[in-house]
Each structure stands twice: as structure tokens, then as C-alpha cells.
Design a protein around this nucleic acid. Structure first.
Length: 287
DNA sequence: TCCCAGGTCCTGA
DNA sequence: TCAGGACATGGG
């Protein structure tokens, strides 16, 4: 990996196990959108970043802080090693090959909490729309990039102070009062939340589930996608389908699917889940 | 019109 | 403990 920085741009040559399409479209994040030239634009730490990949060269435009990139894209983890550990059967070999280049982004805890609360009983395009509505309504204007206005993800201060009706107008539906309540709690408990990555998995899970609107699945997604608890295997409709179709019987309960997968995939269960989720959704397995 | 979506919560057995 | 229904919203 060879890194060059200049002119508000960071270029990495000879990048390994990195595929922008797979990273941004595998379902872990909601604020990245594909541009006409195949690059992706999104917001990280209140900065608008554009990412273009050509082969093993990746350009990060509109940013000069490599630490942000390294941290967000988890560049210190060797995903080649991870895939070798996970590839114990033909199904996973197929899934990791299909989603090769997926990396687990290191996303902000607060944004991930709210985003996955919105994901409950919702579709990915709608989730993205609601998050953009909330950002435009309650976030701070950052800049215009390629003709589109970008806003920061709203702070807990803004969301806790917002009338529920205004959150409803962003199409958050029945989740609206839960979002406001989570924001209110976050204000006084943010130190706890930003420390969950240092807690045990069980402690973190139990704490997150005390929030209205955060059940088992959402809590596990938050732990995996923003708190680096990689040993968890969140079970949603797609994972249920793919596991019941390829590994287990049709009537296997979510709890048993999770247990089976975590025993099988161990400390990288979360990555296995993400490869399988992407594979299942793109191939419509079990649908 | 009905069904469903990266579920959660509440109720009644 | 567990099945069943409600919940906003919008696309197929």
C-alpha cells in the first residue's frame, strides 16, 4: 500500500481487499451515493468525501487527513487474513469471492444508532431517504459538491429539541418519538455510548437494548458497524433466508441461527454476516 | 388492493 | 416464554 497526499486529495496505490462498490453497497452504511463516473460521495466527520477506484488505485478527494481515511475504512485490518479464516466451506468461499473487497467501516456511534433505529421494518432506499431528510432538516450545511448540497448528520442536541411532528415530516414514521427519546438520552449518556467499544459484548448489548426502538437485531448492527464488536452475527430477513436456505432448516429460529453462525465463524462472525447479507440480497437467495 | 421491508413493542395466553 | 398484531411509509 503506497500513499500519496496532495491538493486536498489522498491516493492509495496497490490497495488490497478494497472495493468501493462492495463497501458502500453491502448495506452497512446509508449516506454514500454513486456518481455518474462510478465514484461515491458521502459524509464522514462532517466532511464531504468523494472516492474513486480504478483497479488497485483509490483516490479520496476533498480530504487531506489520512487518519480519518485509515480509521473509517479500517485500513489496518488485513481482510485477506479474515477471509481465509472464514472460508471453511464452499458457501462462504462463494460469498467472500462475490463480495471481495468488503470492509467494515468504522462509523460514528450516534449516527449508527439512529440509522439502524430507522432501519426497523423499512427498506434500504427509504432508510437512506429518511436519513437525508433528517440531515437536511436538522444538520448543518457543509458544502455544495457537484451540484448537490450536503449536510452533517444531525446532532443529538438538535434532534432532542425537535418537535416530533418535524421528525415525522422527515418520513421517520412510527420511529419518530423513539428517535427524539434516544437523542434526549444520548445527551446525558454519550460517554457511556462512546465507551461501548471497550465494554464486553454482553454489556454493550444489554445497554443498547434499554433504548426504545433498539431490539436485538438493531443493537447487534450498532455493535458491529460502529463499535468494532466483530464477533456478532445480526439476523435480519435476508440473513434468515440465506441461512435457512444454505445452512439450516426452514424453521430455524433467529436466536439459533445467530448461535450457529457465531460458533461457526467465531471472532469474525460480523464479517461473515456482511458477506452473506450482500450475497443473499444481490442474488435474492431464498426470496 | 395486498404484501413487504436490514424490527420492535405490547398484549394475552 | 411465545405467538400474533400494530406500527408509518412507499414501492412493487
Amino acid at each position: 500500500m503506497n500513499i500519496i497526499q496532495n491538493n486536498n486529495k489522498i491516493t492509495i496505490h496497490d490497495v488490497k481487499d478494497f472495493d468501493v462498490k462492495h463497501i458502500f453497497e453491502c448495506g452497512q452504511c446509508f449516506r454514500w451515493n454513486r456518481e455518474d463516473d462510478g465514484s461515491y460521495t458521502g459524509v464522514v466527520k462532517n466532511k464531504v468525501i468523494n472516492v474513486l477506484q480504478e483497479g488497485t488505485t483509490v483516490e479520496f478527494r476533498n480530504i487531506d487527513d489520512f487518519e480519518i481515511i485509515k480509521n473509517y475504512f479500517d485500513l489496518d485490518t488485513d481482510y485477506g487474513v479474515v477471509k481465509n479464516i472464514l472460508n471453511t466451506d464452499e458457501i462462504m468461499q462463494e460469498a467472500t469471492k462475490f463480495g471481495s473487497g468488503i470492509r467494515i467501516l468504522n462509523q460514528d456511534e450516534w449516527e449508527t444508532m439512529i440509522s439502524f433505529m430507522i432501519s426497523a421494518n423499512n427498506r434500504i432506499p427509504m432508510i437512506k431517504r429518511v436519513i437525508e431528510n433528517l440531515s437536511a432538516c436538522f444538520g448543518e450545511f457543509i458544502c455544495n459538491f457537484r451540484g448537490k448540497d450536503y449536510y452533517s448528520f444531525p446532532t443529538a442536541e438538535r434532534l432532542s429539541a425537535a418537535p416530533v411532528e418535524k421528525i415525522l415530516e422527515c418520513k421517520a414514521g412510527f420511529r419518530s418519538p423513539r428517535i427524539k427519546e434516544a437523542a434526549r438520552r444520548f445527551l446525558s449518556e454519550k460517554e457511556v455510548i462512546y465507551n461501548i467499544r471497550n465494554m464486553t459484548y454482553d454489556e454493550g448489548l444489554a445497554y443498547l437494548k434499554t433504548y426504545s426502538g433498539i431490539g436485538d437485531k438493531v443493537a447487534n448492527c450498532i455493535l458491529l458497524f460502529s463499535m468494532r464488536h466483530f464477533a456478532t452475527f445480526p439476523v435480519d430477513v435476508w440473513i434468515r433466508r440465506v441461512m435457512q436456505t444454505l445452512y439450516l432448516s426452514k424453521d430455524t429460529k433467529d436466536e439459533d441461527i445467530k448461535k450457529f453462525a457465531e460458533e461457526k465463524f467465531g471472532k469474525f462472525s460480523g464479517l461473515a454476516q456482511q458477506y452473506l447479507f450482500y450475497y443473499a440480497r444481490e442474488k435474492e437467495i431464498g426470496k
